[in-house]
């Protein structure tokens, strides 16, 4: 039986101007999930519920098999949580923070912490207030990675990082993934980062999960077809075609359930399929969000 690192069932949470509605999410142990959504979609709220910082109004939340927020103390022993707006203590050094965290976590890996200090080019004696944003994020990652958590929850960790720092952070995360038992929930609105490291992806928009699947299914299922529609021939409506735009005789069809059979059906209707384009994750994300909003309205 597969063990779940994260399990949310029908989770709801209301705020005056925003609501999380019926969030269902499952992350198997050893998987990396990209949690993607526009700003204000509910990513951080969902993550804060996972961390026990917010309590769901209804629904069930389990992290590493432990109900949240009731068992948050136990669960947090095995969770490494980093968010881009999390701060360390400005008037203390990184070495002081390392000592604090090391004294709390028995599994703290000194050798790995030293490796990360070198890789991230961090000086442990430096005061936190003297670190740049990128260095601060790397320091936070060091503090969670060296405690060898079973689950990493990263809320927009690469937000605001320069390309080099982003590469370093992502490379380290990829490295962490060599351990098959470790799971990562990686929230971002940067689809390039998510595409690089995730093996499954969940899209969230306006407080609802709009699609959740493995990365390959997303990239295989979503395609854009360029069609030539002859005069007098109407463009048939197929269920898989979720968005159609036309400019003269040229039509562009976006589908979220592509199979070669779709091309055949267009051909049978007298329509020439010029090109079948793969979509980037960013294009899939935007199309998915727009489709979901249209469906809801």
């Amino acid at each position: 039986m597969t063990t779940l690192a994260i399990q949310l069932d029908n989770v709801c949470k209301q705020f005056p101007f925003f609501a999380l509605q019926d969030i269902c999410l499952r992350l198997e142990e050893g998987q990396i999930m990209g949690f993607v959504g526009p700003n204000g979609a509910g990513k951080s709220t969902t993550i804060r519920i996972l961390m026990g910082l917010l309590r769901q109004a209804s629904g069930e939340v389990k992290v590493l098999g432990l109900p949240m927020p009731q068992q948050q103390t136990l669960a947090k022993q095995q969770i490494g949580y980093v968010t881009d707006d999390m701060a360390l203590f400005g008037n203390a050094s990184l070495a002081w923070h390392i000592e604090l965290v090391r004294s709390i976590y028995p599994d703290w890996d000194d050798a790995y912490a030293k490796t990360l200090l070198d890789r991230f080019y961090l000086n442990p004696q430096q005061m936190i207030k003297g670190l740049s944003h990128g260095e601060r994020i790397k320091a936070l990652l060091l503090l969670v990675l060296a405690r060898r958590p079973r689950l990493l929850i990263l809320d927009e960790p690469t937000s605001g990082l320069d390309p080099v720092a982003r590469h370093e952070v992502l490379a380290e995360l990829m490295d962490v993934l060599r351990d098959d038992d470790r799971s990562i929930l990686f929230s971002s609105h940067n689809t390039v980062d998510v595409e690089q490291i995730s093996d499954c992806i969940t899209f969230i928009d306006r407080g609802r999960i709009i699609q959740s699947s493995d990365k390959e299914s997303f990239l295989e299922g979503w395609r854009r077809l360029k069609l030539d529609v002859p005069d007098g021939a109407g463009l048939p409506h197929f269920e898989e075609a979720i968005e159609v735009s036309t400019a003269g005789k040229i039509a562009t069809v976006t589908t979220n359930a592509y199979t070669p059979g779709l091309q055949t059906r267009y051909a049978q209707a007298g329509i020439t399929v010029h090109e079948v384009q793969r979509m980037t994750l960013e294009e899939v994300f935007v199309a998915n969000v727009m489709y979901s909003r249209k469906e809801r309205s």
């Binding site: 969770i79 999390m86 701060a87």
Partner: peptide, 17 residues
């Protein structure tokens, strides 16, 4: 205000503690 409490709350401690 500076969100360092998020760092502390990420440690194995309940909010009441």
């Amino acid at each position: 205000e500076n969100k360092s409490w998020l760092f502390v709350l990420s440690l194995p401690i309940s909010t009441t503690q």
